[in-house]
Design a protein around this nucleic acid. Structure first.
Lengths: 218, 218
DNA sequence: GTCTATAGAACGATAGAC
DNA sequence: GTCTATCGTTCTATAGAC
């Protein structure tokens, strides 16, 4: 449901009530519970509807980039572009597309287990395919470094997509608005350069505590 | 209140009820409304308590980096480190610190105006100081490019901080846990390299629609 | 300043007529 | 499959005793 997509993106999952969706979509409250089992299932249906499409486009672009570069491996920039461009283009297509990428990015910051698990199922294979390509294109870097940098790049992309107005925190209104094509290129250049950085000073003085210890609630 | 910090970080603002906080903190429901005016004011109080400290450390580090490099401008890497390291170190300090940076990162993805406005007031000056330093260190790059890249770097940092377990989406469990010191260096290297990238292929085929809310005035 | 008690509204979910 | 009606719960916020 388009109304659910918009409201979830705008107010978050918990901040959105089924009743609000019902009012916006001018449908019946009980019909939601009939077609989807619950509020959470509705969210997953909204997400699944588009994620499948975006990831298919991503994989197609990656395959094309790899075929074009064969027998050498595709360049980091092309791999990154194959991941990022479909998302920005999807956001560009129409209002609904823009809304969806906001929602998707926002869901990556949620900590609820059921959602994290859902994202893992939906994105695991695609991301795995891309990390494989990046590891192949950056054989001189440790696996750990490439994986973290991939994560950073996704974070940079999500920050841009999930809350459009937040750039004002940095620009303070001094920035003319940037076209999507420019933005894609900015992102790709940034991410590709970051991924290719020389890993010169490996500190390797390990401390005990880490940020990555998982805390599963319930 | 520490309990509020934890619950807001874990479940988001809308997902957390004052009653949940009251139960966790073993205090009285009415006392919350007496000391803070509302749920939103409680959130802002929780955020303000720490943001001030982190931003002070950031500015101190930036000034030190600039003084060390004088009369030349500080290196991009040092500027970036002055921004990122205090946050990761804060997260490392104790459980409460780790919880807070998760909360702060998460709030950056919220779209509610009152919160966006609040973040602008709390972070505007600090971020402005850093973008100024970066513009000085990267005089050959267009202002627009530097500002966007700064935004990307902040996004990369937030992605890491806000939901610790999400790296598994990329690593699929194949990654041993990384120490915070390593993680800081990974982030700094990634962000510095991204910020310094050659802006070779400026696309400049402008399309009409943009992802950012403001319209181009032309 | 801290409590109990409760107002007043909104929530997710379901039952059952049609 | 779509409706009305409602259950049982939870929510923020406040009033008023101590």
């Amino acid at each position: 449901m388009d109304a659910a997509e918009w409201l979830f993106a705008d107010q978050g999952f918990e901040g959105t009530s089924i009743r609000g969706i019902v009012d916006a979509a001018k449908v019946n409250l009980a019909a939601i519970h009939y077609h989807f089992r619950s509020k959470e299932a509705l969210l997953e249906a909204v997400l699944t509807r588009r994620i499948t499409i975006i990831n298919e486009v991503r994989l197609k672009r990656l395959e094309f980039a790899e075929a074009s570069a064969a027998p050498r491996s595709a360049s980091v920039e092309e791999i990154v572009r194959a991941f990022i461009a479909p998302t920005v283009e999807f956001a560009q297509r129409d209002k609904s597309g823009a809304t969806f990428v906001q929602l998707m990015s926002r869901m990556f910051t949620e900590r609820r287990f059921s959602l994290t698990d859902f994202l893992g199922r939906k994105f695991g294979d695609t991301i795995g395919r891309f990390t494989g390509a990046l590891l192949g294109a950056l054989p001189h870097l440790p696996r750990e470094v490439v994986l973290w940098r991939t994560f950073f790049a996704i974070g940079a992309m999500h920050q841009v997509l999930c809350s459009p107005g937040k750039i004002d925190l940095v620009s303070r209104g001094l920035l003319e608005s940037t076209s999507n094509d420019e933005l894609t290129e900015y992102l790709v250049q940034f991410a590709a350069a970051g991924l290719c950085a020389n890993s010169s000073s490996k500190p390797s003085k390990k401390k005990s505590k880490t940020l990555t210890s998982r805390r599963r609630n319930e």
